[in-house]
């Protein structure tokens, strides 16, 4: 008998059931938290991101993006950035380079990625309830760019904001991609005397650039 069969047999023996016994439906999922009003999403999201130690900047139009990114990089004294492969991020490569920023692809050599000052990615969704960014690795090479450098700049269109975690779980693609990361604030620890220290293994600075939805005329 294989190890798998041995353990399954032990489980069935303990439960007093037989292989292939009918399994009733699990308890139906319940609404765990009520959705927010759509008009509250942005304010709530921004408030929660700040509450967990991140920063939020709201941009009126996509044309403001480059200026905001450059300002944030300058303020953080960041000279090298890892860019994810999202088109909106890649579109900044040339203007950033022209402004003296060294741009790395997220598949560059690990030593270079480890030495970078900042990473720029998008998020596929934001959760207003918890101030959480959802990074779908199946859609964007964002795993290392969002993790290794001390500053993570994350672009999120406001139209991608969801109300609750439950809604976000339902919005995930089927089948699931190989990796999805939920990010709420910068990397943190309190392992020494419960003192909060940010940036222990991941970014110490998380800056979310919220891009306003185009107004309909």
């Amino acid at each position: 008998m294989s190890d798998r069969e041995k353990i399954l047999a032990a489980v069935r023996e303990a439960l007093g059931t037989k292989e292939g016994a009918p399994v009733p439906q699990p308890p139906p999922p319940v609404t765990i938290s009520l959705p927010l009003q759509s008009t509250e999403l942005v304010a709530h999201f921004a408030q929660r991101v700040v509450a967990v130690g991140g920063r939020v900047q709201r941009l009126a139009a996509i044309t403001d993006l480059l200026g905001a990114v450059l300002a944030t990089l300058h303020a953080a004294n960041a000279h090298s950035v890892v860019l994810s492969d999202a088109p909106i991020v890649q579109a900044m490569r040339q203007p950033l380079t022209e402004n003296g920023i060294t741009c790395l692809r997220s598949d560059a050599e690990l030593n270079h990625l480890l030495a970078a000052d900042a990473g720029i990615t998008t998020a596929q969704y934001g959760i207003a309830e918890t101030g959480t960014l959802i990074l779908d690795a199946g859609r964007e090479r964002s795993r290392l760019a969002s993790l290794l450098p001390p500053l993570h700049l994350c672009l999120l269109p406001e139209s991608q904001l969801l109300s609750t975690l439950g809604e976000a779980l339902r919005a995930l693609p089927h089948p699931l991609p190989y990796a999805i990361t939920f990010v709420s604030g910068p990397s943190r620890t309190a392992d020494i005397e419960l003192q909060l220290v940010v940036g222990v293994h991941g970014p110490k600075d998380l800056c979310v650039l919220l891009i306003e939805s185009q107004k309909q005329h």
């Binding site: 199946g138 990361t181 991941g202």
Partner: peptide
């Protein structure tokens, strides 16, 4: 556990990478 609304990171991992462009 820690009195947080959510921990900083949740990794939802479903299988190894399947394309050369994947990280993992």
């Amino acid at each position: 556990g820690t009195g947080q609304d959510l921990t900083t990171y949740q990794s939802l991992l479903t299988g190894p990478k399947t394309a050369a462009s994947h990280e993992g």
